[in-house]
């Protein structure tokens, strides 16, 4: 039961994020939703890498036991870095849009349509 809890939380986070992106009209809040999806994916990745009783794969004076394969942790770190870059880029886009359009409402930021 508790073993599955992180996966449930990860799925909930993704669903929350997607719902935010669908129902919030403010562009900043949509990006917050996107960040929630990203957090959910990161949590899923880390939970997949969890091994009960495993130890960190640091060889210097390591205690006895099974070492954890650090692939997913590395993936999570990479995704966090990518996420920072994306969020920064998106927020700067919204900044420029707000300055030029005077609004960050998705229903008004629609000069491109049809």
């Amino acid at each position: 039961m508790f073993f599955n809890l992180p996966f449930i939380v990860a799925a909930l986070l993704v669903i929350l994020g997607i719902t935010t992106m669908l129902i919030k009209r403010n562009l900043i809040k949509m990006i917050m939703g996107l960040a929630l999806v990203e957090a959910g994916v990161n949590l899923l990745l880390v939970s997949i890498g969890y091994r009960a009783g495993g130890i960190a794969p640091i060889f210097t004076s390591a205690p006895d036991g099974v070492m954890v394969m650090p692939t997913v942790q590395a993936m999570t770190l990479t995704n966090i870095v990518i996420g920072i870059a994306t969020t920064a880029l998106l927020l700067s886009f919204v900044m420029v849009i707000y300055r030029m359009y005077g609004t960050a409402n998705a229903e008004k930021v629609r000069k491109l349509r049809g």
């Binding site: 992106m21 669908l22 949509m30 349509r113």
Partner: peptide, 17 residues
């Protein structure tokens, strides 16, 4: 068809999902 291309970002996400 043309009104479907609303230009609202939420709709784009909704179509995708």
């Amino acid at each position: 068809l043309v009104p479907l291309h609303t230009g609202v970002l939420n709709d784009y996400v909704l179509w995708f999902l």
